[in-house]
Design a protein around this nucleic acid. Sequence first.
DNA 1: CGGCGTTTTGAGAGAGCTCAACATCGGTGG
DNA 2: CCACCGATGTTGAGCTCTCTCAAAACGCCG
Lengths: 201, 201
Amino acid sequence: MSALGFLPATVRKSSTTRELDAGEILFHQGDRALWIYEVEHGRLRLVRYTVDGHPVPLHTARAGELFAEAALFAGTYRCDAVASVPSRVRVYPKRELLAAFRRDSTVAERFMAILAGQIHALRARVQERNIRSASARVLHHLALNTGKDGRTARLDGSLVDLAAEIGLTHEALYRTLGRLEKSGAIERNGSEIMLKKSPGL
Amino acid sequence: MSALGFLPATVRKSSTTRELDAGEILFHQGDRALWIYEVEHGRLRLVRYTVDGHPVPLHTARAGELFAEAALFAGTYRCDAVASVPSRVRVYPKRELLAAFRRDSTVAERFMAILAGQIHALRARVQERNIRSASARVLHHLALNTGKDGRTARLDGSLVDLAAEIGLTHEALYRTLGRLEKSGAIERNGSEIMLKKSPGL
DNA sequence: CGGCGTTTTGAGAGAGCTCAACATCGGTGG
DNA sequence: CCACCGATGTTGAGCTCTCTCAAAACGCCG
């Protein structure tokens, strides 16, 4: 179930979980970085504060996501982590992880692979945000999220969630999907969307 | 000079460089993944093709950037890499890198630290792109790129480059900077921008 | 001097956001 | 069993903001 499921039993057993209420703070900027985390459910905002105390949002970590990985290689956290909604996180002690990496290089490599995969996904997302047109952006997203046939994308959450993920309002997303379907570019079927003939992206 | 400067001499010596003309292809989707790359100068587009042959841009790698790191853990490349302009890349043989990781876990850890840092930067960039308002986006970017004083950001390239980096047209950026300066939110001084009193971001 | 890239300002249009109303569905409690 | 409520899905109308296209001043370098 966890993205870190490959970890040896010794490390996995050293992990714990922590429940957070909405608004509860997991760690503060400047705290000693002793753990990294994975969101089991809920949502956490990572926020940095400027010298004059203004918040600068860095990221929102969602279910299934690993975060504060940079803490592995830094002494202190560089931002605050606050639960946006009631959440549960899995807590991995940094020492144990690093020890496991040293003990077995294949563990280190798998972890690197996870990081490399995240980089890939994030780059694609940045690229996606460069696309202004709602329809082109939606098609880009769908094209990158097709299943094995390379044509069909399955929606796992609501359209509201999808809209947030690709950076559109849900109204704009509804309208865009409607227009794309009417024009024959896609076909909807419950939670599945099939790309018919993708026009120039 | 290289982001991978920490690598042991044996690995560094095993790296080579390759010059690319504009439009020249570095690797193809499906090619065996034997190398990872670093852009020394120029710009490369990473593009994936859908089943019906339409290009889906994944990323644009710029000077100083490491790319195709995922190749370390995959058998084949998952996209094409094409030079947008005449470019030079440094070529690291995957085998040598992986061997170095296994030989010395501190090398592996430094590489992980680089990956983790990239993830951080990319997440911040995604977050930044979620901001619609040009002025808020500019302030967000400046706040995350201040020097040690936490107030002053130094521009390394032209404003045209900055505009592309934060996803605005250069005209919009000029106007926004002008307005911010007039309103007293920032102060410009050649290539330095000082944040005066950051309003709510 | 004559280009070329950067910086700057202007006017207009289009696209997505905002606000608003409404239908639908599933769960909850009286 | 039904009324109510919240989340999801959908559509409409107007507005704002950035993009686009255009033009021009500026500095730099050959």
